[in-house]
Amino acid sequence: MSSVTEAVRRRPMLTVVGVLIVGAIIYFAIIAAQTKPAVDQVAPSPLLYRPAPALSGPSLYSHSTISLRQFRGHFVLVNYFASWCSSCATEEAQIAALARSAAVTVLGVDYDDSPGPARRFLSLYHAHFPVLQDSNGANSLRWGVSAPPESFLIAPNGIVLAKIVGPTTVRIVDALVTLAQQKGY
């Protein structure tokens, strides 16, 4: 013990630096421990577990306006896609299958695209679900979309439950919906 006090007396600055470093390590360890595990989130997003941002725009098929609010009371999969995006083509058959199932309502958002190619792209996969256009990118910006395909699972009460980056499948979405139902959403 006396050798420790001796060492402290001889090198006060080094001791202070040492104490600071140890303190910083403890501080960052606490922060790291408090961060939610990634498996809980599918992909990290500041939108998770908060009310979904506004989402509305002109329909791809008619002159009406589609809004996410119309789908309250259902699990909604908001799917950002584009006809020019090759990864969207790999998932589109799965999205079309999801739209036919009863588990979830699919709402497509056409990201940085033209209506003609988007309609052709969807008909290729026999996809029949409401699609809104986001020609100026305002909706994507509010939802923090970087590049399509990106999907968000919305609870019946309008809370964002999951963000899926990249192509998704029926199985993933079904699992997420089941999990959410078990948790009482």
Binding site: D112, G137, S140, L141, G144, S146, A147
Partner: peptide, 23 residues
């Protein structure tokens, strides 16, 4: 720029960058 690694919106030309620049 959200879809292009370590580039600022100012230096990139992706769709998402244009949206952010416009915003």
């Amino acid at each position: 720029c959200p879809s292009c690694g370590n580039l600022a919106v100012y230096n990139s030309k992706t769709a998402s960058s244009y949206s952010i620049a416009d915003y």
